[in-house]
Amino acid sequence: MNSPVVSALLPVVFLIAIGFIAVRAGLIRVEANKDLSNLVFSVLTPALLFRTMSTVHVEQLNFRPLLMYFAAVLLLFMGVFVGKGRDHRAAVLALACTFSNTVMIGIPLISLAYGQAGMVTLLTLVSVHLLVMLTITTVVLEMASARQARLAGQGGQQHMALTVLLALKGGLIHPVPMPIIAGLLFAQTGLVLPEVVDRPLQLLGSAFGPVALVLVGAMLTQVQIGTHLKAALGISLLKNLALPLLVALLGWGLGMAGPTLNVMIVTAALPMGANVFLFAQRYEVAQELVTASLAVSTLLGLLTISLVMALVGWLG
């Protein structure tokens, strides 16, 4: 129980189990899952994103390791997106293979394993992780919507430039990018949120992780994991092992080494974040597969993170 991997992952497993048991016991109705999803996506998520980004000062960020990390993420994201058909389902599965649980699992794990120096590196990444990952995914999803509309003959005469602009507009006027952008703009003013505003946002943001994971457990009652086990295992292996391998190879290729690169590699090896599940529900695609993959990725993480950390320690 003293292992940082076990200490970080077990609370996540327990919260998912609580949601599963609550539905089985009749404490949460299956019909309420959609309402819970709307609560998380439209209320808790914006509060968390705005408050997180409201203290981020762009000029203080070290962009070199971030650019390396997101270059690896983008390579895998686009590979999965193109390989799976460039539609809504492909975009959500690409996010599933690249979006790490940097907060609920990453923060306690990196803190226990790498101390304060590691936390500085991780929090620099966390400060822009949601902005980059979720904005890219939202824009890609909106582009996929525009593409599918054109293929269906609903926008055949529409100029491509207008299609792109409409997709970008749809990607920005959205419960995810809007609070991120608003928070970043607020941070650049140098102002501080008043306590009467900051405290409610803090409470709402703190509820995001537990409620989202309980919701994942509730959704598992409707999913036959055995049916999706092979596909979920494939997604989990890409997320837990292929992504950290890409980050490591790219980092070494660029001459990076030491604790900063190690933290980036381990962060890439973290299990899938619950935000992927929310996108699957929002766009009503691959919901069962993403739910199964989230559970498999988290459980598999007990082994894969230990393996990655051991290899990083041996090589570093």
Score class of each variant (00 low, 15 high):
residue 241 L to V: 12
residue 268 A to E: 04
residue 240 N to S: 07
residue 234 G to A: 10
residue 271 P to A: 10
residue 262 N to D: 15
residue 254 L to T: 11
residue 228 H to A: 09
residue 238 L to D: 05
residue 249 L to S: 10
residue 267 T to Q: 13
residue 231 A to N: 12
residue 271 P to K: 11
residue 238 L to E: 06
residue 229 L to M: 15
residue 273 G to M: 14
residue 248 A to P: 06
residue 256 M to Q: 14
residue 235 I to G: 03
residue 250 L to Y: 11
residue 240 N to D: 09
residue 259 P to Y: 07
residue 259 P to Q: 15
residue 235 I to E: 01
residue 245 L to H: 06
residue 277 F to E: 08
residue 262 N to H: 12
residue 259 P to A: 11
residue 232 A to L: 02
residue 226 G to L: 04
residue 264 M to H: 10
residue 251 G to W: 00
residue 241 L to E: 04
residue 284 E to G: 08
residue 238 L to H: 06
residue 275 N to S: 11
residue 257 A to D: 14
residue 236 S to C: 07
residue 262 N to V: 08
residue 232 A to W: 02
residue 238 L to G: 05
residue 264 M to V: 04
residue 270 L to N: 03
residue 249 L to D: 03
residue 239 K to L: 03
residue 243 L to A: 02
residue 235 I to C: 06
residue 257 A to K: 12
residue 254 L to M: 15
residue 230 K to I: 12
residue 284 E to F: 08
residue 237 L to D: 03
residue 238 L to R: 11
residue 250 L to M: 13
residue 248 A to E: 08
residue 268 A to T: 03
residue 252 W to L: 15
residue 276 V to G: 05
residue 242 A to C: 12
residue 278 L to C: 00
residue 266 V to E: 09
residue 243 L to Q: 05
residue 263 V to I: 13
residue 274 A to T: 14
residue 231 A to W: 05
residue 262 N to E: 14
residue 245 L to Y: 05
residue 267 T to L: 08
residue 233 L to F: 13
residue 262 N to K: 11
residue 234 G to V: 05
residue 256 M to V: 04
residue 279 F to H: 00
residue 268 A to V: 00
residue 278 L to G: 01
residue 256 M to G: 06
residue 260 T to A: 13
residue 240 N to A: 07
residue 259 P to N: 12
residue 276 V to C: 12
residue 248 A to Y: 14
residue 284 E to S: 13
residue 230 K to M: 12
residue 243 L to M: 12
residue 250 L to I: 14
residue 253 G to M: 04
residue 253 G to L: 01
residue 238 L to Y: 07
residue 239 K to Q: 10
residue 234 G to Q: 09
residue 234 G to S: 08
residue 232 A to Y: 04
residue 266 V to D: 01
residue 256 M to Y: 11
residue 253 G to E: 08
residue 264 M to T: 01
residue 285 V to T: 15
residue 275 N to E: 00
residue 229 L to I: 14
residue 258 G to L: 09
residue 281 Q to V: 07
residue 228 H to D: 10
residue 267 T to M: 11
residue 270 L to Q: 01
residue 280 A to N: 01
residue 282 R to P: 04
residue 282 R to T: 10
residue 248 A to F: 15
residue 251 G to Q: 04
residue 263 V to R: 05
residue 237 L to G: 07
residue 285 V to I: 02
residue 276 V to K: 05
residue 243 L to I: 02
residue 234 G to N: 05
residue 229 L to S: 10
residue 244 P to S: 04
residue 265 I to T: 07
residue 264 M to W: 04
residue 285 V to W: 00
residue 243 L to P: 00
residue 264 M to I: 01
residue 268 A to C: 09
residue 275 N to I: 10
residue 264 M to R: 04
residue 279 F to L: 01
residue 280 A to P: 03
residue 231 A to L: 12
residue 231 A to R: 13
residue 244 P to H: 02
residue 240 N to Q: 06
residue 245 L to A: 15
residue 228 H to R: 07
residue 268 A to N: 08
residue 253 G to N: 07
residue 255 G to I: 08
residue 277 F to T: 11
residue 242 A to L: 15
residue 235 I to S: 02
residue 261 L to W: 06
residue 243 L to H: 06
residue 229 L to V: 14
residue 228 H to S: 09
residue 270 L to T: 00
residue 237 L to F: 14
residue 229 L to W: 13
residue 268 A to D: 08
residue 282 R to Q: 12
residue 250 L to A: 13
residue 229 L to G: 06
residue 269 A to F: 02
residue 246 L to R: 00
residue 275 N to Q: 07
residue 231 A to K: 13
residue 255 G to D: 03
